[in-house]
């Protein structure tokens, strides 16, 4: 069984493309080298200092982009704590040596940076018990879907749980105790044909609202997304209808397939 992913993203309405402050990464694994597929979606806080750098650091380290000084973290509390430490130390080590003005320096020292996180690893894809394991801090959500039906979502947020002050990964080391307290770990069994959708908060909130209304078409629509423009049109429509908060949105979709597709269609 193979894991194949695609990621859709859209900046806030009215913002430039480069102002998108989420992040997503995928490593589809290498069974021959004992590397399991890994996926991560993070949501940099709008008011954070240099959210783009923090988000990029978290994503590249978690999926193990070549050249990283450490192996990606195991998805256990101890390993995640060590990873948080390393991420914060690197953030501080790469701090600017000078700032443009006193306000920017205040922002760096007082606020630092912050992002919600959903990281996922797929294990046993070639064995009898394939599963997903995930860690979460905050309101980025993983949806496990089978035959266009939701199996579960993680973390188990409700519609009313989105909003003020979500948990997340902070650059402040004194925040680690709270981060460890907030850290959630989940898992689920996988089957061929299953899909995982990982979405940042605005999109995840909309998904949960649709599920509350028993939307039978939701997963079919999301399964058939095949182009950035289609995704952008969907988000624009639901924003215009007042059903989705105007925020950066990211949706990473992972499919469990038996083999590579016969054709690759490139849309330009």
């Amino acid at each position: 069984m193979l894991a194949r992913s695609v990621c859709f993203a859209l900046e806030k309405a009215g913002s430039a493309v480069w102002e998108w402050e989420d992040g997503a990464g995928a490593s589809e694994g290498s069974p021959g080298h004992g590397l399991d597929p890994r996926f991560i979606v993070v949501d940099g806080a709008t008011e954070a200092y240099d959210a783009l750098r923090w988000v990029a650091q978290l994503v590249t380290s978690f999926v193990g982009v070549t050249g990283q000084p450490h192996a990606p973290p195991a998805l256990t509390p101890d390993a995640m704590r060590g990873w948080f430490d390393r991420m914060q130390q690197r953030w501080t080590a790469e701090a600017p040596t000078q700032f443009t003005n006193i306000i920017e320096e205040w922002k760096y020292r007082q606020d630092g940076s912050f992002a919600t996180l959903l990281g996922c690893e797929l294990t046993g894809l070639t064995g009898p018990t394939p599963r997903w394991n995930a860690v979460a801090l905050g309101d980025t959500v993983l949806f496990h879907v089978r035959n266009n039906q939701l199996i579960t979502h993680f973390p188990a947020l409700r519609v009313d749980d989105f909003g003020v002050a979500p948990a997340g990964v902070h650059t402040k080391s004194e925040g680690i105790a709270q981060m460890m307290s907030d850290l959630e770990i989940g898992r689920g069994e996988l089957r061929l044909g299953d899909q995982l959708f990982i979405a940042t908060d605005a999109f995840a909130h909309w998904v949960l609202q649709r599920l509350q209304r028993d939307d039978q078409q939701l997963w079919r629509v999301l399964s058939e997304l095949d182009h950035d423009a289609t995704f952008a049109a969907l988000v624009a429509d639901v924003r215009a209808a007042g059903q989705m908060r105007n925020d950066d949105v990211t949706l990473l979709r992972v499919r469990l397939v038996a083999a590579e597709p016969d054709y690759l269609v490139v849309c330009l």
Binding site: I102, W106, R109, Q110
Partner: peptide, 14 residues
């Protein structure tokens, strides 16, 4: 909460 570790809070302000 206090500032980022090893980066003490500034005492200069606008």
């Amino acid at each position: 909460e206090s500032s980022v570790d090893a980066m003490p809070m500034l005492s200069r302000m606008p």
